[in-house]
Simulated assay, not measured.
Amino acid sequence: MPEKRELDAGATAAYAHLFHVLADPARLSIVQHLASGEHRVRDLVDHIGLAQSTVSKHLSHLRECELVSVRTEGRASWFSLAEPRLLADVIASTERLLRATGTPASLCGHIHALMSEPSR
């Protein structure tokens, strides 16, 4: 009989939290926009069409998971993907899994451009 392994509750919670953050369509839209480069909240509001407070809340969730970083310049805050290549790898793996399970889907070209960049 195979050895029974205990689940790592901390790792399970970390994975669940990350997948929960990435499960929201608005947050995925923000990720897609940030894949093209830095944006201010106001830029994201214009692109996505959500209220400023809603975009800020979603950015807060993405920052909490350290998927997004912020750079302050004067009174402006510029947001960017913290690990763009690693996030592109996750998205590429997700696309392969979706294809394998009969639901082919692909996110925007900005993400695909990250996938073709050499690793840093």
Rank of each mutant, 00 (worst) to 15 (best):
H112I: 02
R40S: 12
G102A: 09
G74E: 12
T94F: 08
S69G: 13
R63G: 04
R40T: 11
E38Q: 11
C108Y: 07
L107N: 01
A11N: 03
S56M: 14
L81Y: 03
W78I: 05
V55N: 02
A11D: 03
H33F: 08
I48T: 05
A16D: 14
H47E: 15
E95M: 10
L50Y: 04
E64D: 13
K57T: 05
V31K: 02
V70Y: 00
E83Y: 08
H47D: 15
T54C: 00
S119L: 14
L107E: 04
E6T: 13
D43N: 14
R63S: 03
S80E: 15
S60E: 11
R63Q: 06
T103H: 15
R120M: 05
R99F: 01
Q52M: 06
F79S: 12
G10Q: 14
V70F: 01
H17K: 13
P118K: 12
L97K: 06
A13M: 08
E95H: 12
F79T: 04
L59I: 11
S106A: 10
D8S: 06
V68N: 01
H17W: 12
A16L: 12
H47N: 03
E73L: 13
L50N: 04
R71M: 00
P25C: 11
T101W: 00
T101Q: 03
M115E: 14
L86Q: 09
E95S: 09
E6K: 04
G109Q: 07
A88H: 04
P2T: 12
K57A: 13
M115A: 04
A35Q: 07
R40N: 10
S106K: 13
K57R: 13
T12Q: 07
R85I: 09
V41D: 00
L81F: 07
L62T: 02
R85F: 06
L81C: 08
A88P: 01
L86F: 14
A16P: 00
L98D: 09
V90W: 06
A76E: 06
P84W: 00
P2F: 10
A105T: 14
F79D: 01
M1T: 13
E117H: 04
R27D: 02
S56L: 01
L67Q: 01
S29K: 09
E66F: 06
L18F: 04
A9P: 01
A16M: 11
L67F: 08
R40Q: 15
E73T: 15
I91G: 00
R63P: 05
S93V: 02
L86T: 02
V70T: 07
E83I: 08
G10R: 10
R5E: 05
R85N: 02
E64R: 09
A23E: 11
L107A: 11
S56C: 14
A51Y: 03
T54H: 06
Q32E: 07
R96A: 07
E73A: 03
A105F: 11
R5K: 15
H110P: 12
S29E: 07
V70W: 01
L86C: 02
T12V: 15
